Structure formats: C-alpha cells, structure tokens
Amino acid sequence: MKEIGLYEAKTKLSSLVAELEQHGESILLTRHGKVVAQLSLPTATRAPKRGCMKSENFHISADFDTVELGFEDLQDQPNQKVAEDEMPYGNI
C-alpha cells in the first residue's frame, strides 16, 4: 500500500483518486509519519432491509393508496357484524 503525507495528498488529490481508480490499491494518508486515514474504492453496500421490505420480491403497486370508494359509497353498504355485537359488556 502506498503511503503519502496529508499535505502532499491535499495538493495531489485528483491524481491520487485517478491512481486509485486505475490500480484499485488503497492509499494510506499520514501525518508526521503516522497513518491517520485511508483512501480506497467504495464497497458495494446496500441499505439495511427493514420490516416487510426484507423480501427480495417486495413490491408496492403504484396505485396502492388510490381510494376506490368515497364516503357516500360506504353509507349504502350493509353494516357488518362485529365481535362486540355477540356479547354485551355487562355480562362478563
């Protein structure tokens, strides 16, 4: 690995990056002979997957948030029976 001082690296940054792209070998940056940083090619990283998006096949449709029924349409729908309808709260 090549080592170069910070001052020299500052003045030759463009050529150091070109050398890095061409050869792919990391370059160590030093201050008073001590390595303080490293120039290297970026690694291919992916954002961490969270929740349901962990699946490789996860897909959201372009119209997932399209509302097909308006409030007026819901008023004409028959009422659905819910669990609370079966047992009144006072008879537990």
Score class of each variant (00 low, 15 high):
residue 46 R to F: 12
residue 16 L to Y: 14
residue 64 F to C: 06
residue 3 E to M: 06
residue 47 A to V: 08
residue 70 G to K: 05
residue 92 I to S: 07
residue 58 F to P: 00
residue 56 E to G: 08
residue 34 K to T: 14
residue 54 K to V: 10
residue 58 F to G: 02
residue 84 E to F: 02
residue 16 L to F: 11
residue 52 C to A: 09
residue 70 G to H: 03
residue 15 S to T: 14
residue 2 K to Q: 13
residue 10 K to Q: 14
residue 84 E to S: 04
residue 2 K to P: 07
residue 65 D to S: 10
residue 51 G to K: 04
residue 80 Q to A: 05
residue 34 K to G: 02
residue 76 D to S: 11
residue 60 I to Y: 05
residue 50 R to D: 08
residue 18 A to L: 14
residue 57 N to A: 11
residue 80 Q to L: 07
residue 13 L to Q: 09
residue 92 I to T: 03
residue 16 L to I: 12
residue 7 Y to C: 01
residue 20 L to E: 09
residue 51 G to N: 10
residue 49 K to F: 02
residue 35 V to S: 15
residue 7 Y to Q: 12
residue 17 V to F: 15
residue 74 L to W: 03
residue 29 L to G: 08
residue 44 A to T: 06
residue 59 H to T: 02
residue 18 A to P: 00
residue 81 K to F: 02
residue 74 L to G: 00
residue 56 E to F: 04
residue 75 Q to D: 07
residue 11 T to N: 15
residue 6 L to D: 09
residue 67 V to T: 04
residue 23 H to R: 09
residue 53 M to P: 00
residue 60 I to T: 09
residue 61 S to F: 04
residue 16 L to N: 10
residue 67 V to I: 10
residue 59 H to Y: 13
residue 55 S to E: 12
residue 24 G to D: 10
residue 73 D to G: 05
residue 60 I to E: 14
residue 3 E to G: 00
residue 92 I to E: 13
residue 35 V to H: 04
residue 61 S to I: 01
residue 54 K to F: 04
residue 54 K to D: 11
residue 59 H to S: 07
residue 68 E to F: 10
residue 23 H to A: 06
residue 16 L to H: 08
residue 10 K to M: 14
residue 59 H to P: 00
residue 18 A to Y: 05
residue 4 I to C: 11
residue 48 P to Y: 06
residue 90 G to Q: 06
residue 38 Q to F: 01
residue 31 R to H: 12
residue 19 E to V: 00
residue 57 N to C: 01
residue 81 K to H: 01
residue 19 E to R: 07
residue 59 H to K: 10
residue 5 G to E: 15
residue 11 T to M: 12
residue 1 M to L: 09
residue 78 P to E: 08
residue 76 D to M: 02
residue 82 V to E: 08
residue 34 K to F: 10
residue 72 E to D: 13
residue 5 G to Y: 05
residue 13 L to W: 13
residue 67 V to C: 04
residue 83 A to W: 05
residue 14 S to K: 14
residue 83 A to Q: 03
residue 66 T to Q: 13
residue 85 D to R: 01
residue 56 E to I: 03
residue 80 Q to I: 03
residue 30 T to P: 09
residue 29 L to Y: 06
residue 38 Q to P: 00
residue 60 I to L: 15
residue 35 V to N: 13
residue 32 H to I: 01
residue 4 I to V: 15
residue 42 P to R: 11
residue 54 K to P: 00
residue 90 G to A: 06
residue 69 L to C: 01
residue 57 N to E: 13
residue 75 Q to T: 04
residue 47 A to Y: 08
residue 80 Q to E: 08
residue 86 E to M: 04
residue 15 S to L: 13
residue 26 S to E: 15
residue 36 V to F: 12
residue 64 F to M: 05
residue 62 A to V: 03
residue 48 P to D: 12
residue 43 T to L: 12
residue 90 G to S: 07
residue 34 K to E: 15
residue 38 Q to N: 12
residue 92 I to L: 13
residue 59 H to D: 05
residue 22 Q to W: 00
residue 21 E to G: 02
residue 52 C to P: 03
residue 76 D to L: 03
residue 27 I to S: 11
residue 14 S to Q: 15
